[in-house]
């Protein structure tokens, strides 16, 4: 099980990387952490003619707080983000999501931005990005542009990146005050991709009603999805158990065509999505109340 041949480039600046990617177009792949790409190469399921390795580009491994956001550069390893004090203080949901990804050796090498650009619909971080309304900073031959997470994830392993473009950083809004959060999933084994998962944040106003609710699901469509149908049930309401149950039911009903595979059918994913939305909202509520 050996990878096919490819041309290998290790640029030291982002401009150089963009130029190489533009030059090779569809034939090139970006190599960052490699924890998804290299297995596909070894299995010969991917055969790029060229690999543009970002690992020698300096100054891309940052994780920092900036203007009410947590900003994560293309080469920040998942493990570093998981341990970041800025992340813990401002957006703990990211660290919690990372702890559900694979295993330490995978997170040591894998990057947060790489996971977003790979866009596995069952992955945790894209769903967090969608739930939080993160911004994707894309750089390419024509300069930089910023894409909303909701628009960035197009379909299975497909994102809004043109040939020559690189996802340079992701900006996650910090958690507002009086906000609780949760990420829960069902996976076959610890660390596996989720059969289904839910992300929720819940902001309470002075009366204890939900002033803001965000719910996103992963593993249940060809991309991570926000679930406005569930959010609506709670917005402006007190998030008691009955309301949350109704939101969960709304999430279940909103799912169009969940995937089926050897591990679970569409029916299972639909059922469990509702269960997980309920659990995520209840946990987010407890955290919001505790942050009082």
């Amino acid at each position: 099980m050996k990878p096919p041949s490819f041309e290998y480039f290790a640029p030291t600046t982002l401009d150089e990387a963009v130029a190489l990617l533009a030059q090779h177009g569809d034939e090139a792949k970006v190599l960052a952490g490699g924890q998804s790409l290299v297995p596909m190469l070894n299995l010969r399921l991917a055969r790029p003619a060229a690999l543009v390795d970002l690992n020698r580009v300096t100054g891309l491994d940052y994780v920092r707080a900036e203007n009410g956001h947590v900003v994560i550069g293309a080469l920040a390893r998942q493990r570093a983000v998981e341990r970041s004090a800025d992340v813990a203080a401002r957006q703990p949901l990211i660290a919690a999501a990372i702890r559900l990804i694979g295993h330490p050796a995978v997170r040591n090498r894998g990057t947060v931005v790489g996971s977003l650009a790979h866009a596995d619909p069952a992955a945790e971080l894209p769903a967090v990005a969608v739930a939080l309304g993160a911004e994707m900073v894309v750089t390419g031959p024509n300069g930089e542009r910023v894409v909303a997470a909701d628009d960035f994830f197009v379909s299975y392993l497909t994102v809004d990146l043109a040939p020559g473009e690189v996802l340079k950083e992701a900006r996650f809004p910090a958690l507002p005050p009086r906000t609780g959060w949760s990420i829960v999933e069902v996976a076959r084994r610890f660390g596996d991709f989720a059969l289904a998962g839910a992300v929720a944040t819940l902001t309470l106003d002075d009366q204890g009603a939900a002033s803001d609710v965000r719910v996103a699901l992963f593993g249940v469509a060809d991309r991570p999805v926000r679930v406005p149908e569930a959010e609506q049930v709670l917005r402006g309401e007190r998030p008691d158990d009955d309301r949350i149950a109704a939101a969960a039911e709304a999430a279940r009903a909103a799912l169009v065509d969940p995937p089926s595979d050897v591990h679970a059918s569409a029916a299972y994913r639909r059922h469990v999505a509702g269960v997980l939305v309920g659990r995520a909202l209840r946990e987010a509520r407890e955290r919001a109340q505790a942050s009082g």
């Binding site: 290998y8 190599l31 490699g34 924890q35 050796a105 040591n108 090498r109």
Partner: peptide
């Protein structure tokens, strides 16, 4: 295939030697 790369555990089957 786990080894330490600059002190951190990694899977050496998922890294190219040139890297």
């Amino acid at each position: 295939c786990t080894v330490l790369l600059n002190g951190e555990a990694v899977r050496s089957c998922l890294i190219f030697a040139v890297q």
